[in-house]
């Protein structure tokens, strides 16, 4: 069976890969958006923190014998705490300056972290095995769906939507959105804004680490796994509109799928298609698809 001259097997295969990539784009751009909303900085360390998540999962297995499910719980917390430490000790000193200094600082940290891990573990990947519960797959008739990949898509979608719900529909989220609009006023109402900023940074970083754990069984654990990925995610964030929560989720998944289909129909462009879309979106809507005009 073929659609537009392409075997359905290949088409659905790429759709699945697209959705998987989209799940990572969505999780990472969501973290970036949450951080950007409150701190107004682009967290360049995000890719390194995603990589750290995968490494914490690897360490937990090697050193403590704790498997995938524990890693899913512990890694975001551990990496989130390192993020909080980073924010408390360095980032907060830069809030009174141009936000570009925040970008440069996080870029510097990304270089340090990636350099240290590369020095210790080289550039080749370390294997991380899939949890036993999610081995195997389903034959859907038109394609074979590995259980683990289905889990990644469903789980990341659930995390994204929960985050969206918390920010857009709960009291805590309303504080957060208010602080994004006018931190001084929110502080005057007796809400501890600096602490909120710190926790938000920790949370965004935790999301990156969570994505890293999810990625470990698929892509192996590699010191440079986040370095190039994060630049694609920056483009995703620009397309969706910086700071827009739903925008990051929708564009993340959608662009993953678009990228997957490009691999089927015009493979030469599969690496550039997201950047081409970004250029087109900027021409029509400079503030992104879901962003508000600044």
């Amino acid at each position: 069976m073929t659609i537009l001259g392409v075997p359905t097997q290949a088409l659905f295969g790429q759709l699945l890969i697209g959705l998987i990539n989209g799940a990572f784009y969505a999780l990472l751009s969501l973290g970036l958006s949450v951080i950007f909303g409150l701190l107004n900085i682009i967290n360049f360390t995000h890719g390194a923190q995603y990589m750290m998540g995968a490494f914490v999962a690897y360490f937990l297995l090697q050193w403590a014998g704790l498997g995938y499910w524990w890693a899913l719980l512990i890694a975001p917390v551990v990496v989130g705490i390192t993020g909080i430490a980073l924010e408390r000790t360095t980032l907060k000193r830069l809030y009174h300056l141009d936000h570009l200094y925040g970008l440069l600082l996080t870029f510097g940290f990304a270089l340090i972290i990636q350099g240290l891990f590369r020095h210790e573990y080289g550039s080749s990947g370390l294997p991380y095995s899939m949890p036993r519960e999610l081995a195997g797959g389903q034959n859907l008739g038109f394609m074979f769906l590995p259980n683990y990949r289905a889990w990644v898509i469903v789980f990341s979608l659930a995390v994204c939507l929960t985050t969206w719900y918390v920010i857009e529909r709960t009291r805590l989220g309303s504080y957060l959105r208010a602080a994004t609009e006018n931190p001084a006023l929110v502080q005057a109402f007796g809400i501890n804004v600096p602490r909120m900023i710190t926790l938000t940074y920790g949370f965004g970083v935790g999301l990156a680490a969570l994505a890293g754990v999810l990625a470990a069984p698929i892509y192996q654990v590699n010191p440079l796994m986040g370095a190039d990925l994060i630049i694609v995610v920056f483009a995703v964030v620009v397309i969706g509109g910086l700071g827009s929560i739903m925008g990051s989720i929708v564009t993340g998944f959608a662009l993953g799928v678009v990228e997957g289909f490009t691999k089927v129909f015009y493979p030469e462009a599969s690496n550039t298609v997201i950047f081409v879309i970004m250029a087109l979106v900027l021409l029509v809507r400079p503030s992104g698809l879901f962003g508000r005009a600044s």
């Binding site: 950007f36 682009i42 570009l100 483009a235 964030v237 910086l242 690496n271 950047f275 970004m278």
Partner: peptide, 28 residues
């Protein structure tokens, strides 16, 4: 022409993305 319409962090991001486009073009 495309990047100059934005400022600050947006500008940094957009130029980075365009450069990455040039990079992938050069690879292929």
């Amino acid at each position: 022409a495309l990047a100059i319409r934005s400022k600050g962090i947006y500008f940094a991001n957009i130029t980075l993305a365009f450069a990455q486009m040039v990079y992938f073009f050069s690879v292929q």
